[in-house]
């Protein structure tokens, strides 16, 4: 097991380098640059700026300089927000997005499996139909519709929840409710459908018939014999779901004015703020790689047929 973890961890390094390299050159291929303005900057000033950020050097030198900095955990200065380094910008915004993402995914998994179990056990009864209708709605209605509707109902009409802001504002933790509900909805719906399907499949399996033939109570059969096997596909889904939820929070953050990474991400791409874009890409890819890494380990712990050698 520990050997597997070490080997799996080592394989992360080349993946990471490839991501950094590809994004570095791809961004530079895009037309425009961080200092392109409608109002022309005098050429001597531009030359000074370029020199300051080492952008007058050959691209390959810039690349190696950048990789060297990254290896020292320095993502460089922002080209647009001149008072801030990329580390500062992302350091403030990422924890917000991560918190929102983790809370949303946690809710999605909890409610998703709960609803999945209920509809699987009440298959083709009204509870099942109701739950699956909600799931279809959850998958098909876009976030930018759900968000404003929630805001309209719970903040403006009922006045139960604040319209926007974040935990550090006066409204406190209540601010996280609506954004996380909005963000979790499609994932909740997908997990509900998936767990329903896999529970129904396991319920029909031979080993569940064996468990029943042994005289076990139905509740024991489900808890001990059905759930573990049925949860495996959901664990596999958690990796991609987590990265999806983190990157997908961009829209939700805009709607509920959450000070997360979303705004910086969009702005930096539009501004060609090279270092910030690269910083985003690097942090996102670390999250993605870690999420998949954790899922692999979890999967091995859950399924005894998978052995790590």
């Amino acid at each position: 097991m520990s050997r597997f973890i070490v080997r799996r961890f080592l394989s992360v390094i080349p993946t990471f380098l490839i991501i950094v390299t590809l994004s570095f050159f791809l961004i530079r291929l895009a037309p425009g640059g961080p200092f392109a303005r409608e109002k022309k900057i005098p050429p001597e000033i531009l030359a000074n700026i370029m020199h300051k950020y080492h952008m007058d050097e050959p691209l390959i030198n810039q690349y190696f300089r950048y990789v060297g900095d990254v290896l020292h955990f320095d993502l460089g200065p922002s080209f647009r927000y001149k008072d801030h380094t990329v580390n500062e910008l992302l350091g403030a915004a990422f924890p917000v997005s991560i918190t929102l993402g983790v809370v949303s995914l946690g809710l999605a998994v909890f409610f998703g499996t709960l609803v999945g179990i209920i509809s699987a056990l009440r298959q083709n009864k009204w509870q099942d139909y109701a739950a699956m209708s909600v799931a279809v709605l959850g998958i098909s209605i876009p976030l930018f519709v759900v968000g404003p509707i929630l805001m309209l109902v719970f903040a403006l009409k009922l006045k139960w929840l604040p319209t926007s802001g974040w935990i550090n504002s006066r409204a406190g933790w209540t601010t996280i409710i609506m954004p996380s509900m909005t963000l979790m909805l499609p994932y909740f719906a997908y997990i509900a459908r998936m767990s329903r399907g896999s529970i129904i499949e396991v319920l029909r399996s031979d080993y569940v018939r064996t468990a029943r033939a042994k005289g076990l109570k139905e509740t024991v059969v489900i808890r001990k014999h059905v759930l573990k096997g049925a949860m495996l596909p959901i664990v596999t889904y958690l990796g991609p779901a987590f990265s999806g939820i983190i990157t997908g929070s961009v829209v939700v953050e805009q709607i509920f004015v959450v000070p997360g990474i979303g705004k910086i991400f969009v702005q930096s791409a539009l501004n060609r703020d090279y270092t910030v874009i690269m910083g985003d890409v690097i942090v996102y890819s670390i999250i993605l790689i870690t999420a998949n890494f954790v899922v692999d380990i979890l999967y091995g712990l859950l399924d005894p047929r998978i052995s790590y050698k």
Binding site: D206, Y207, T210, H225, G229, D303, R305
Partner: peptide, 10 residues
């Protein structure tokens, strides 16, 4: 079928 009648996870 003894291959599928025992719970693979236990």
């Amino acid at each position: 079928d003894p291959m599928t009648c025992l719970n693979p996870f236990l």
